[in-house]
Design a protein around this nucleic acid. Structure first.
Lengths: 202, 202
DNA sequence: GTCTATAATTTGATAGAC
DNA sequence: GTCTATCAAATTATAGAC
């Protein structure tokens, strides 16, 4: 599963863990060094500065989260098929990386331009235009009820991602423990597509 | 609109702005002092420490965001009525405080216990139990399609809050400027209730 | 209450030995 | 490449004059 056990890799994994948990401003180089089981000076030897190291971790996170959105937006299949596949796949993925979306969102909100740059640099950029056209076609064909395509897109991502982002809030409100929460997310892989289908299928 | 122009109030307003924008770890006491147009030492004179000042701002934010959830959960009206009222009202509110949810969520994720404490201390706590029972009744009565009540609750909050939390992400993906984004959120006051109704009304 | 000056601490970054 | 020791800057917090 893990790549090399080179020092560089160890640092990147440690940095990923600490940055994603604490954010850029909250992370401490000392924490990262401890987590990696090495000395603080080595961080600078390998990555020059906190900012540089962060940039790499953020970049990788964007590369994990963004291109996956394309499975809604691009793949050639009926809209409801794509949404179903996406929800299952993406929620599954978030169960593995539950803290990544909040990390990216928080840092994007601190520095929106950085996210814009990263997205521009992606080989596989999310591009809603295709999806929007396809939804319009299926509405015209009578497959879907009339629905604003952009809002539909936002609905889908909201339903999939928000619970992970707001996890501590939802856990507190609904008095859930971690196990219950995980189970609920597991259910959402089916609940979300069913809900959307009920809303828009003719 | 604003309360007194006492120094204490000026500080709290400045702190609110800075903390909500930068988070606890990212905020600087100097920024808050500048924003309030006073000296840094005065902050400590009035609020003792950064942590103490933060606690007050966080507390107030929780008091703004949480009790409003009760309009879904408690008020006596048919489920779909309540959801419609809530969505309109809450989104309207978020248009005034667009950065508050991400602030609370991010800090809650840094320190989940703090949020739990704050919620426990609320006079008007969000309590899903009533809502869940009501949904079950309306399903039994044939008003609603069968749907898991807890998931329905999560759907509603997700659809309302997520776009504000993920604003920079959505703006970047869909190439929107601020005006377009605001317009879209304005539309969601109607889109979200319609979408939910289409999904669950029998 | 409010300010200036400064202390105390934290933290990112570097120098230099091995 | 890796470590220890240390620096320099940033940042919270306080002392003390007015």
């Amino acid at each position: 599963m893990k790549k090399d056990n080179t020092t560089e890799q160890k640092i990147k994994e440690a940095a990923k863990k600490v940055f994603i948990k604490k954010g850029l401003a909250g992370a401490r180089m000392q924490d990262i060094a401890d987590q990696a089981g090495i000395n603080k000076a080595l961080l600078h030897y390998y990555f020059r500065s906190k900012e540089k190291l962060f940039e790499i971790i953020f970049d990788e996170s964007v590369q994990v989260l963004m291109p996956q959105l394309n499975s809604i937006l691009e793949k050639d299949a009926p809209v409801l098929e794509k949404i179903k596949g996406f929800a299952t796949f993406y929620i599954d993925n978030l169960l593995q990386n539950p803290h990544m979306p909040l990390f990216v969102i928080h840092e994007a909100s601190q520095n929106p331009q950085r996210l814009v740059r990263k997205i521009r640099a992606l080989k596989s950029k999310p591009e809603p235009a295709v999806f929007i056209k396809q939804v319009q076609q299926e509405i015209a064909a009578g497959v879907l009820k009339p629905v604003d395509p952009m809002h539909l897109f936002i609905h889908v991502v909201s339903l999939c991602i928000f619970p992970f982002v707001a996890r501590p809030m939802l856990k507190a409100i609904a008095h859930m423990d971690d196990r219950t929460f995980a189970m609920l997310m597991e259910q959402r892989k089916k609940e979300v597509p069913l809900f959307i289908e009920a809303a828009v299928r003719r």
